[in-house]
């Protein structure tokens, strides 16, 4: 019983930390035109919360489905497809890109493309009657590689000046989020999370492995498919909103597992959302106000996450 209190306490601490970093981010050094600054920062905070929610839920659920801690759903080809779509758009319209296609259109095209892709992928695997999740992943990644090489080819054809438009999309950033995209993303994320949280108890059982899950009366294939759809929606929304942050999921999930040793997924995911939001808020705060760096936060997260991943692979005795 003592353990439960501990987790509760840690959850409260995480919540407080998140609130504190949010407040710090919002109110630190507001300056004279505080109304304007607050509004701008407010948008960023909302964007960070959206991304935190998407990344945390999708990564934890994905790792439970695949029974490991070192994969994240974003490697499944979503991000390379997103970049391919962006590259094609820039290739087609070059420097007219922003005029021809509003950011809302772009967002819709990207989300629709990514979700459509995931459905095709699931259909392909399940039609063939091979309900092997690892196979699904590998096929997704290979398709992702195909998309990346197509984009790198097209990027060769793009004028270097226009290339900067693509490069801007290659890294997630909270600095130039379009406010119009924020609210639809927030709504989609909240709705998906509401559905997702009602199903977290299935994740508890799925964590025991496929055979046990079936034994305990889960309609395994159906539940897995539902989670895959949820994951696809969340990853797409987050990617289309701010861009790819491949390894954020890896970093925050493992941090969460270390801090909250529980098998109860509703707690785990809630904790992970708070950990992600705190990490992003503090990271963004440091980048923006303290170091004044121009490097996108995601490039740093990917690097830190990358080193952490290699450390994880080498440290763990058995994977």
């Amino acid at each position: 019983m003592e353990k439960k209190i501990n987790i509760r306490r840690n959850l409260w601490i995480a919540l407080l930390l998140m609130m504190a970093s949010g407040a710090l981010f919002l109110f630190y050094n507001l300056g004279s035109s505080w109304e304007f600054a607050l509004r701008l920062r407010g948008f960023k905070v909302v964007a960070i919360l959206v991304v935190a929610g998407c990344v945390a839920f999708s990564s934890v659920a994905f790792q439970t489905l695949t029974n490991n801690r070192i994969l994240t759903p974003s490697i499944m080809g979503f991000e390379s497809l997103y970049l391919l779509i962006q590259t094609v758009i820039v290739y087609l319209y070059s420097d007219q890109t922003y005029r021809v296609l509003s950011s809302i259109d772009n967002f819709l095209v990207s989300v629709a493309g990514m979700i459509g892709f995931s459905f095709l992928l699931y259909l392909l695997i399940y039609k063939k009657g091979k309900d092997n999740l690892y196979l699904l992943l590998l096929v997704g990644i290979i398709l992702g590689t195909l998309f990346s090489s197509l984009s790198s080819f097209m990027q060769l054809l793009i004028d270097p000046n226009d290339f900067f438009i693509v490069q801007g999309k290659m890294f997630a950033t909270f600095n130039k989020i379009n406010n119009k995209l924020l609210w639809p993303s927030l709504v989609v994320m909240t709705a998906t999370l509401l559905i997702g949280f009602r199903m977290t108890r299935y994740l508890d059982v799925l964590a025991l492995g496929r055979d046990q899950a079936i034994n305990l009366g889960l309609d395994y294939n159906r539940v897995v498919k539902i989670f895959l759809v949820i994951i696809a929606v969340l990853v797409s929304v987050s990617t289309a909103l701010v861009g790819p942050i491949t390894f954020l999921g890896l970093l925050v999930t493992n941090l969460t597992y270390e801090l909250f040793r529980t098998h109860k997924h509703h707690l785990l995911i809630a904790a992970c959302i708070m950990v992600s939001a705190t990490a992003l808020l503090i990271g963004q705060f440091l980048m923006e106000r303290v170091f004044n760096l121009s490097i996108p936060l995601s490039a740093i997260i990917n690097m830190v996450g990358g080193f952490y991943f290699i450390y994880l692979l080498l440290r763990v005795k058995k994977l």
Binding site: I70, L71, I75, Y134, L137, L138, I141, T145, M170, T246, F247, A299, N302, M303, G305, G306, F307, F309, I310, L313, L319
Partner: peptide, 15 residues
């Protein structure tokens, strides 16, 4: 899968 992930990581550090 792990190998591709590993490659992605090295790639992101280079990037």
């Amino acid at each position: 899968l792990v190998g591709l992930m590993f490659g992605g990581i090295i790639g992101s550090i280079s990037t």
